[in-house]
Nucleic acid binder design. Structure first.
Lengths: 215, 215
DNA sequence: AGCGGTTTAGACCACTTGGTCTAATTGATT
DNA sequence: AATCAATTAGACCAAGTGGTCTAAACCGCT
């Protein structure tokens, strides 16, 4: 159970007034801590140490640990959305499932390549307790972890996905692969190796590992 | 860095003399704690509370937190090996990669179905720090997390896996899928649904999602 | 210069952690 | 029954946690 602070306006933390936007040292320290440890393990003492900040100041601005995490997610979710929006605008709802999937994988990998901490931040959030996730969700009007439901269903109806696969199974596989995509990249990957991994992943999704006539 | 207790014989914890074998209440409490939380988060206080045991007694037998974890892994690794051995004897080194893979998936899922805590225990160990993993490995003469290396290489050489896939990529995909196999099962799965999931997974690995001529 | 609200610093609190230590209890052996 | 080692109980410790609170510092204003 979360105990929220009475008389504290968590909504004030969101948007342009987000105090994290005015202290880049604190923002960095907060990203580092929450991307390395889950919510409960993350240490506020470590954060204020790395940010050269005092405890009083942190609590004055953010109310409590949840407030700090909420502020962080606000920034980071917006960053993810703006990163994906370029792609979402032009490619979604295309009739080409595997083409769309490839673009999604590419953007996801580039987002991760750009700053691996972001990727871990979202994975930690996915693994968090339902209560924490729900409390965070309450503050955002959209579901920032959109599933693949519609995409998959239309691909099955249009016959691009063999109908011996259930939509639930396909969704589960995709979620597993997306949330583990960092494991497909070693730390010293080049751009070409990244593209090569994407090609192999789509090839696997479409035709499997076995050597057969590919299209 | 681990600080080991001087004058304590950790080796004495292994095998038939393992103190966990003589206290089933403690064994259960230890499995529950270490399967739900990672090593650092797991609370000895919670364990002794749930096992109706005193702190002095626990430290007397196990030396420290690492000793308790080591004792647990000793038991659990042996359980896993005995579970797999039936399968490994008859099916390994067969020329049929996808058949072997299917058997491996089946046994893994049955092992997990049998006691989900075991599955989580091994996954937590995989995610643990290298130092903890290495310290545990030192006490066992074999690598209890065997990879798929040999299996994959021979499948590529025999042409069962298309050679546009690198062995590293295949290994990575399989590791991801195996360690997330619990997500393919909902909590109220029947036996038939389990078999159905296995079929879909092998089908995907072999031929992909796309609707094409299968074999 | 002096006022008044905002922000900062850090001592402090209750609680939990892994680990220590001593004293009491138990249990087998003579 | 007496002895002595093995075992257990739990008070205690230092360190770390999230959170509170007061007093000082800061800053814009008139």
């Amino acid at each position: 159970m979360f105990k929220f602070k009475k008389n504290f306006n968590y909504l004030g933390l969101l948007g342009d007034e987000n105090p994290l936007l005015r202290n880049s040292q604190l923002l960095e320290a907060t990203i580092n801590e929450f991307s390395q440890k889950k919510f409960e393990e993350a240490s506020l003492n470590d954060i204020i140490k790395n940010a050269n900040m005092s405890k009083g100041s942190l609590y004055h601005h953010f109310g409590d640990k949840f407030g700090l995490y909420l502020s962080l997610m606000d920034i980071v979710i917006k960053k993810k959305i703006s990163f994906y929006s370029q792609f979402l605008e032009k490619k979604i709802d295309s009739g080409d499932f595997f083409g769309t999937l490839k673009e999604l994988v590419r953007v996801t990998m580039e987002f991760m390549f750009n700053d691996k901490r972001m990727h871990h931040l979202f994975n930690r959030n996915l693994e968090a307790s339902d209560e924490l996730k729900n409390q965070i969700l309450k503050f955002f009007s959209y579901d920032y972890n959109q599933g693949f439901g519609d995409l998959i269903n239309s691909a099955i109806q249009s016959g691009q996905i063999d109908n011996r696969f259930t939509p639930e199974f396909v969704a589960c596989i995709l979620e597993i692969l997306f949330s583990n995509s960092h494991k497909l990249l070693s730390s010293d990957n080049t751009s070409e190796e990244l593209l090569e991994s994407i090609d192999q992943l789509i090839e696997l999704m479409q035709f499997g590992f076995s050597k057969n006539n590919r299209r």
